[in-house]
Amino acid sequence: MPDFFRRLHRTISPSSGDDESEVRADGGVVSDGPTADAPTEPDRDATARLKAALDRRFGSDFMESSIFWLPPFLLMGLFVYGAVIWNLLISLTDYQRFENAPDYSDLDFEMYTRALADSGFIDAAVNTLILLLLFTAGTLMVGLLLAILIDRGIRFENSFRTIYLLPMSLSFVVTAQFWLWIYNYNNGIANSVIGTFGLGPVSWLGNQDIVLYAIIFALMWQFSGYAMVVYLAGLRAIPREHYEAAKVDGASTLKMYWRVIIPQLKGATISAAVVLMVFGMKAFDFLYSLTGGYRPPNGADILATKMVREAYANLNWAYGAAIAIVLFGMALGVIGPYLVYEYRRDNL
């Protein structure tokens, strides 16, 4: 601590090791002529000096620029980080039912032990992980494939791109209606398609073992256009010469993509994967709209839906908050490394 104060003092004093001239300045005595030992004109105003000191510490525009970013940053910080911390606190209470406010006097980890003992929670957590991994991997692969196909210098490129990205512009609530219809047992397309191969009919949303994968498929439909756009931008950044050099070296098309082009898409893959995983965690809207209620189809419960259901349907506020913290931890596990990666690449 003493070291901290010394540093603070040094930061605030305009010229270190020159106390005398400072005192003179504070006394309001005007010193004429160039003062060789004080590099700045003595500031008479303490706040002005503090401002200058802060500027020197943080960079020349720090104070002047703070008016631009600080208020929005605080608003955002309050709503995001303030709320997360508050949520953590609530998860340690026993807040439930129609109590007006949580009782913060008695904090414990009861809600977390309760979660571990709740098979519904474990199922939801497993489902969340399956959804995250399959959805992200599948969407990336489809997106990459589409991007490569579209980037082969085809005609109507824009039209194809527009069509592939179209589902992305729709709300989960809307696309859920479409997929409900597709997965309809009697009249849905899904069953008529597999019916032509002599299979089915399958109860896509009723069968506990299938429903999660049916939902993942629907989500892939909605988001693969996004992955395609990201990959397309990545592909466009690769100079044409790389393709030509690989061709000249005698690589087949497949080899060229595998060995030369795809490795260069690492950055695009990482950022797309992060966004997709986060979207996957937010898949709540889709699941809610499938049933029009807090309980998603059996076998497709994920942490995001369980959290909202516990809190808003069952009024187990504290328990919901605890589940939310687990979800937050998962998100952090994805975002943290990503941000460090971006920082290292100087991309922030």
Binding site: P34, P39, T40, E41, A52, S60
Partner: peptide, 19 residues
């Protein structure tokens, strides 16, 4: 750019910390 060390003057006025 900020000046790490030394003084810069315009017309005998030190301007190191002048914007």
């Amino acid at each position: 750019e900020t000046i790490t060390a030394g003084t810069l003057s315009i017309d005998d006025r030190v301007v190191n910390d002048v914007k």
